[in-house]
């Protein structure tokens, strides 16, 4: 019983963790991309369509990642090359993504999908309790864990990561030091897009293997809140993601048991939790100021 519940928590948390990790990298480079929801839903629909056409969910995963990255490039071109307002452009990405995905997926509504099957890791998978939870999972779960560790290493142990954080904290100084601000930011934005696309693929290939319009249901926005919650640190994203996964699954179970609270109030819990968490994290102005990448959301035009 507990094992089954924890498994669903992991499935619910994985897309949040992946999307938030991608956005974390983007924001560490100083770019605020509010289009996570849009990139996620594009990843979900493209992954689903690719899987249905080819019959292989692995091709679906690759397609989802590619779609997210390609879609983020639109955002990159507008905000980095044309220095458009990042907040507005991110919103545009979300609005366009929701419309486009509905259009692309229209004829796929109601089709039974193909689920991404778990990969059993020999020996480790036989450990009682932990084995089924951690070592008999699907590819995307393993990727999420690898991403947490990889991004932590990249940001705090690698030279390129250091340069990227420098750009996020002060793009003019970084530019003066000869670091290519725009190119790095393009890569960071595309990495964020790829992660959002992967998170979307998880939704339409693992979480509920089918295409439903607007199936991201605000998860992209929750992922954005998670980045703030995690004060831009990958390991905390993991913790926060699982906390939100637990809230989501907890309210679903509460609905199933019918504990006398209207289902709508329970469905609102993840959104209420997001607000509460934001309040707790943000109310200390000083720590927020220290943790936030200093040039986050500010436009940069190289002088020449």
């Amino acid at each position: 019983m507990l094992e089954a519940i924890l498994l669903t928590v992991i499935t619910a948390a994985t897309p949040l963790v992946i999307a938030a990790l991608g956005e974390l990298v983007t924001e560490r480079s100083g770019v605020l991309n509010l289009g996570v929801e849009g990139m996620m839903i594009m990843g979900a629909v493209v992954a689903f369509v690719a899987t249905q056409t080819t019959g292989s969910p692995y091709i679906g995963v690759v397609a989802g990642i590619t779609a997210g990255a390609a879609f983020s490039l639109l955002f990159g071109f507008l905000t980095l090359t044309l220095v458009a307002n990042q907040v507005a452009t991110g919103l545009a990405l979300t609005i366009l993504g929701l419309g486009l995905s509905g259009q692309i997926g229209e004829s796929y509504v109601g089709q039974p999908g193909i689920k991404l099957q778990p990969i059993n890791i020999p020996i480790l998978g036989d450990i009682p309790f932990l084995g089924p939870l951690l070592f008999r999972q699907d590819l995307i779960f393993y990727l999420s864990i690898a991403l947490v560790i990889g991004i932590h290493w990249f940001l705090f142990r690698s030279r390129t990561g250091l340069k990227m954080r420098a750009i996020g904290d002060n793009h003019s100084s970084a530019h003066a030091l000869g670091i290519n601000v725009i190119r790095t930011r393009y890569l960071a934005v595309m990495f964020g897009g790829a992660c959002s696309g992967l998170a979307g693929a998880q939704l339409s290939l693992v979480y509920t293997p089918q295409w439903v319009e607007n199936m991201a249901a605000g998860r992209g926005w929750i992922a954005l809140a998670l980045v703030v919650f995690a004060s831009w640190r990958p390991l905390r994203v993991l913790a926060g993601g699982y906390l939100f996964g637990a809230v989501t699954i907890g309210q679903l179970h509460a609905q199933a048991f019918g504990i006398g609270i209207p289902s709508q109030f329970l469905s609102a819990l993840p959104y209420v939790a997001t607000i509460v968490v934001l309040i707790i994290i943000s109310h200390n102005r000083r720590t927020t100021l220290i943790n936030t990448p200093a040039s986050l959301g500010k436009p940069f035009v190289p002088e020449r």
Binding site: L74, L78, L82, A84, N85, A88, T89, L91, A92, I95, L96, G97, L98, G99, L100, G102, Q103
Partner: peptide
């Protein structure tokens, strides 16, 4: 919806 999204993109650019 697609039209609306496209329009916002072009307005911003």
């Amino acid at each position: 919806r697609v039209f609306q999204g496209l329009l916002l993109f072009f307005v911003l650019s």
